[in-house]
Design a binder for these strands. Sequence first.
DNA 1: TGAACAGTGTGACGTACGTCCCACCGCGTA
DNA 2: TACGCGGTGGGACGTACGTCACACTGTTCA
Lengths: 228, 228
Amino acid sequence: MTDRDVDVLSKAPLFEALDEQGAKALRANVAEVRLARGQTLFNEGETGDRLYVVLEGKIKLTRTSPDGRENLLSVLGPGEMFGELSLFDPRPRTASAVAVTECRLAGLGHDDLRPWLTGHPEVAVHLLRALAQRLRRTNDVMADLVFTDVPGRVAKALLDLAERFGQPSDVGLHVHHDLTQEELAQLVGASRETVNKALADFAARGWLRIEARAVVILDVERLRKRSR
Amino acid sequence: MTDRDVDVLSKAPLFEALDEQGAKALRANVAEVRLARGQTLFNEGETGDRLYVVLEGKIKLTRTSPDGRENLLSVLGPGEMFGELSLFDPRPRTASAVAVTECRLAGLGHDDLRPWLTGHPEVAVHLLRALAQRLRRTNDVMADLVFTDVPGRVAKALLDLAERFGQPSDVGLHVHHDLTQEELAQLVGASRETVNKALADFAARGWLRIEARAVVILDVERLRKRSR
DNA sequence: TGAACAGTGTGACGTACGTCCCACCGCGTA
DNA sequence: TACGCGGTGGGACGTACGTCACACTGTTCA
């Protein structure tokens, strides 16, 4: 594990609560996992009690409806944690995890983590806070599904991705989200075609430029306005 | 606090992890709150760090969109907990709590609870599990919003309410949900009119009977099938 | 060099559901 | 008795968005 990895890990809610010594001890238990683009880490319905933190690359969490349609819960980048639900609540996974780009993950098993939860209350409290934040975010997304139209949701999704993966440049805010328009559509709960049209419309207005698996946001303010 | 209240409280995830002695000690800190139908306990945007458990009656959690439209997150009955997000993650409340029926609540403040979180790891772990379950449920609801049509969501909502508030009788499963059709509509993310039509359709098919703020489910199986 | 394929761009068409209406019913209050 | 008022029932109409269809591009693999 590189220094950079250690740095990324320390930003995850799980490690935030630990002092240098504790973090070091916990790090000793992580198993590193590497995935190629498109490779799946685990599938909906499987049992599993491992939690992961993204070290490098991007992972998507997806659900499949009975009739085979897909729904993208979220896209996670470096420092973000997932898979913890099955750890706190021992049930089959309710989502699949698939690599959006080549990526490296830090994995921690139930047995490695349990002593930290029971022996270090600060850790549990930090995790409670992290889950509470997630619940809030999820409720926000739900409200958007009900109240906001597809272009609005696309705008919001882009801004969210920009916040986490965006890189400012002289020409605009470069968001290399690595998602196909199909995946973007699954993320906002719409069809690929309507998402495409929304993007084309934004581009025609000069708010952004479309690139392969990326957009360059030219007018953040307009986009933000459209998202509400 | 009556014996019945003690019984109800003990089913809340917060108390589940405690032994008889611990539960007794924690109960000593609860403040009882009474609300009349329609009365609001707290509002979106307010600060607050109290957690509540419903002792009797029903509470709804609602969010209001910027343009004034309402969204009903959930309806909670006896034994169910709410308001804990602001306790774990100290931010303004993101939903309002309003009494759907006359009701009584047990309230616990941050200061009363903190020692239990840090001193009794089982409590924190139980709460983590409760939040994980909530997150799973919320994700389910989100998937329904994307994939299921309004009648399907209505069917699902009724079955969910039936599971929690339903009382079997000779004629059918009596679900006294205490919600107006408007509230039901806000719960499933649809307009009052379409929910009404869905209900009328179900009734015409003989799957249920509509009553004031209640339904009697006559054919659970058909309704379940329709919900998928 | 071409064939196959994944991803994108765009138009035509159908429909589920929202909005706008109004009628009706029961209930409390003047 | 009449009058509002909150809630329900249900029709007419518009539209956002899904589905289908097809053309176009760039990339990979014979």
